[in-house]
Design a protein around this nucleic acid. Structure first.
Lengths: 334, 334
DNA sequence: ATGAAAGCGCTAACAT
DNA sequence: ATGTTAGCGCTTTCAT
């Protein structure tokens, strides 16, 4: 276990002043090339590494950005948010500190907050697993909301453009000639679902097709809070009608899994008898379903990046709402 | 944007010495109750928050543990590792710093390392997505390996007990009366798969059943590095034999998805005509398959915790290998 | 191009 | 029970 030397110790060994060493370490050009080389050699030999603590203290800036992930991080989505933010922080020479918090246990959030205060975090990103409204009061430290928005717009925020995602995907569907798409949406309690339903409907209007009756909620919650999908109840009903759907649009990839199963059970071949499309939360599922599921990928990585850039560049407390578009990933189901 | 006061400023307002304030902040009991109350009141009124930077500098300890996540964090498994470590750090008053690195881009790992040095991290956890062997030389900062082990055992490590997982699951299968289980394993390049195959076989031996010919590799990699499962090729062959399998054990939940599909296609009802069991990587899949998939859950959360505890409590560089057992999650497929 | 001095906020060590 | 002093490692400011 080796003790990391200080600039003073390097200065002593090199026979120069502390300040000159500091200049070299910080890449200040006003040092004679020869002196610089000597110092660099010795520093590296002594395995010098600057002390962030001392730097923070003296310069009064921490280069730390906090990331509060609210709700248990289990979904792939949240990881993409984190990765995007992490990479952006990294690019800008900032250090991101991650905390999993549970909004419902206030003690937990409070501890995270005091940690971030102790590190003098310059900004905080508050991210939720689902696109939702939250209530975050104004704070001393600027906050950026990620995948959520404040009820009173007190903070800048970065959101998936769910309306546009649905609008674009539906337009693509109609452009390819499908005429009777049905949207199996997630719970309408959900902001994303609400926006997507509107995007779906509006894209229909643009093509002179009334899709307002082609939207169904295909998920319920059982007593113990578990999610249940209803594809196997809804689809047989739909296909019993005279005008059968030609495409099933699923609110989530995992719902698509159920839709595939239900369609198979009904003797329908996905991609041939009926097309399926979805919104992408879980790449591995979309990839492994057969035929591969064509999905509108949510821009979580990019959202994470944007949030971090806002956090770094906009010290103001209020700010813009950024909506990020998705990217369509074509596979074989549609 | 409020400037956080220092202990000195509080001392001035209260009319006491700096050190007394320090005592109160740090919960030192040797302060008159009355003085303590006054200081606490003022501190809270001034919104005092201790400076971690100053603390680190003076006390020469950082309370920071680094977490290097090698390979892109996409799998649910990695998040559980991170959550476990995070929670343990938290409980012990440590701060965890997370970095995603890509082993193949050395620049990236180097940057993470210098960051951790700058923060004077007390230990580093190096975690991989897959259970594998790695080569990590001895370092100045103690390393704990998580989900991987050093080729020369130079570091303590925490691993899933894949052998035991398979042994226990297989024993359970045989105890319940199944006599012809088949193990559709992942690639044998994989350490976990290798160990599980042995556990499967040995559990068979314990029951006087030879399972050594009941193990098949059910995954290949296509040119572009994508994974392909072979359930639909393997299963029909197996079921064409006179002695049909009575249970399919899958190396991964996502493979089980394919197995369900293949069995359905063959007109076999999972849970009735044939049982299915699996090793759990992706809870949502296991939960949503119908019937629900019974899986041996990998102990990622617990592994993360253990690794963090090792990192905190064992400053030595070398150390033990900890193998963590899984927990069986019963659903309806077996 | 180089250096000296001060001080960031805190705590360890040692008084009183 | 409380206070004084010194110094952690660095950067800022001001000299030379």
């Amino acid at each position: 276990m080796h003790k990391i030397p200080s600039q003073r110790e390097i200065a002593k060994r090199v026979g120069t002043s502390l300040k000159t060493v500091s200049r070299v370490i910080n890449g200040d050009p006003r040092v004679k090339a020869e002196t610089r080389a000597r110092i660099e050699a010795i520093a590296s030999e002594m395995e010098y590494a600057p002390s962030q603590a001392a730097r923070m203290m003296r310069s009064q800036k921490s280069d730390v950005i906090g990331f509060l992930a609210d709700g248990f991080i289990t979904a792939t989505s949240s990881i993409e948010l984190i990765r995007g933010a992490q990479d952006a922080a990294w690019d800008r020479g900032k250090q991101m500190m991650l905390f999993n918090i549970d909004h419902h246990e206030s003690c937990c959030a409070a501890r995270a907050e005091s940690q971030l205060l102790a590190f003098r975090a310059e900004a905080v990103i508050y991210a939720t697993v689902a696109h939702q409204e939250v209530t975050i009061p104004q704070r001393a430290v600027p906050h950026v909301l990620l995948n959520c928005y404040d009820s009173q717009a007190r903070h800048p925020c970065v959101l998936p453009d769910d309306y546009q995602l649905a609008f674009d995907l539906t337009s693509m569907i109609l452009d390819r000639g499908y005429r009777r798409p049905v949207f199996l949406n997630l719970s309408a309690r959900n902001v994303a679902s609400f926006l997507r339903a509107r995007g779906f409907r509006d894209a229909g209007s643009t093509h002179d097709i009334d899709l307002s009756t082609s939207i169904q909620t295909a998920v319920t919650f059982d007593e113990d809070g578990g999610t249940r999908f209803l594809a196997d109840q809804i689809l047989p009903r739909l296909f019993a009608q005279s005008a059968r759907p030609d495409l099933i649009l699923c609110g989530q990839d995992i719902l698509a899994m159920d839709v595939y199963a239900a369609l198979n059970q009904m003797g329908l071949a996905v991609g041939e008898d009926v097309a399926v499309a979805s919104f992408d939360n879980q790449a591995p599922i979309a990839h492994l379903l057969r035929p591969g599921l064509s999905t509108m990928q949510l821009p979580y990585y990019e959202m994470g990046r944007q949030a971090m850039l806002l956090a770094i560049d906009r010290p103001e407390t209020v700010g813009p709402t950024i909506r990020v578009k998705g990217e369509f990933v074509a596979r074989a189901s549609f």
